[in-house]
Simulated scan of single mutants.
Amino acid sequence: MGIVIYGASKATCTQRILATFIEKGVTDYELKTINLMQGEHKKPEYLAKHPFGVIPFMEDGNFSLHESRAISYYIAAKYANQGVKLLPNPTDLKGMATFEKWASVERDNFDNYALPIAIEKVFKPIRGASPDPKLVEHYEKGLLPKLDVFDGILAKQKYMGGDEFSLVDIYYLPYTQKLFDAGYGHFITDRPNVKAWWERVSGRESWQKVLAM
């Protein structure tokens, strides 16, 4: 058996991993669904695997790993010689440093704003809770100028990590999708270069397959 992923196909962080598998042409993996609504991620047997009690979690033989970006990176590197090239050559110092730069940009300048908006506008209502308008406004105000900067960046390069589709773009996919789900799609479509980038990456076969799962 290949890699085992503990997660859920509709969960944003698991979706990063699934998109990576598809881009790399990996089919020898197993997705073991963790039912979040039933609290399976907080049960002792799962906490023994993942100390923070969240998904996803990976097992590859006797090696285990948590955090979706790390797992996606592991998959992209393990299967470097097949499918779409998602990472620079590990011996390319400048390429790897540039990859790390753009990966950090995603977390610090996008995820830190888009994730809380998704929590308030998408995930809370699913649980029967109400969004906090002040929190939503705070994160909206933080995200909008960042998206303006992204629009300038994408005027000079086609993708978030450079001129080629890469793992960095996969990192963005779930929570950009959630902005649309939350009613904030215009944040993306109002910025021509961000819009063009989103159309390129969201239209990829891998992401469409993930959404259909």
Results as ranks from 00 to 15, higher is better:
205 E>H: 08
160 M>W: 14
79 Y>H: 14
179 L>F: 05
199 E>P: 02
128 G>E: 04
172 Y>S: 04
145 P>I: 03
4 V>K: 12
106 E>I: 01
158 K>C: 07
103 A>Y: 09
164 E>R: 03
80 A>C: 08
156 K>V: 13
117 I>P: 00
78 K>G: 10
117 I>A: 00
164 E>S: 14
119 I>E: 07
69 R>N: 14
55 I>Q: 14
114 A>R: 01
57 F>Y: 15
8 A>F: 10
184 Y>L: 15
50 H>L: 07
160 M>C: 14
96 M>P: 01
46 Y>C: 11
33 T>W: 08
50 H>C: 13
9 S>C: 08
168 V>F: 13
68 S>N: 12
29 Y>M: 05
17 I>N: 04
61 G>L: 06
106 E>C: 01
186 H>E: 15
40 E>S: 11
10 K>L: 14
132 D>M: 06
63 F>R: 05
98 T>M: 07
5 I>C: 03
124 K>M: 06
199 E>Q: 12
106 E>K: 00
174 P>S: 12
24 K>E: 07
156 K>L: 11
184 Y>N: 02
211 L>R: 10
45 E>K: 06
181 D>E: 15
120 E>F: 00
199 E>W: 08
67 E>D: 15
119 I>K: 11
73 Y>W: 10
99 F>I: 03
29 Y>D: 12
161 G>H: 05
183 G>Q: 13
195 K>A: 14
212 A>V: 08
100 E>G: 03
33 T>K: 09
171 Y>G: 02
91 T>K: 14
176 T>E: 03
56 P>V: 08
85 K>R: 13
202 S>R: 05
44 P>I: 10
77 A>I: 08
133 P>L: 05
95 G>H: 09
39 G>N: 06
135 L>W: 00
31 L>G: 10
212 A>D: 10
187 F>S: 00
36 L>R: 02
96 M>E: 14
115 L>H: 02
97 A>S: 11
192 P>V: 03
13 C>R: 10
35 N>I: 08
11 A>G: 11
35 N>Y: 12
146 K>V: 09
122 V>E: 10
142 G>D: 05
146 K>T: 01
81 N>T: 12
159 Y>H: 15
77 A>K: 15
195 K>M: 10
21 F>E: 13
62 N>R: 07
183 G>C: 07
136 V>D: 02
78 K>P: 07
98 T>L: 06
145 P>F: 07
209 K>W: 00
60 D>T: 04
20 T>R: 09
69 R>V: 05
66 H>C: 14
87 L>E: 04
38 Q>F: 12
141 K>E: 12
193 N>A: 07
149 V>S: 09
137 E>H: 03
98 T>I: 00
162 G>W: 09
5 I>L: 13
202 S>W: 12
107 R>P: 02
150 F>S: 03
207 W>M: 02
60 D>S: 00
198 W>H: 00
180 F>Y: 09
149 V>Q: 11
112 N>L: 11
61 G>W: 12
197 W>M: 01
49 K>T: 02
24 K>A: 08
77 A>Y: 10
16 R>W: 04
63 F>G: 06
20 T>P: 08
11 A>W: 01
202 S>Y: 11
208 Q>S: 01
90 P>G: 00
202 S>G: 12
40 E>W: 08
125 P>I: 04
118 A>C: 11
133 P>Q: 11
196 A>K: 06
47 L>V: 07
123 F>S: 04
164 E>V: 06
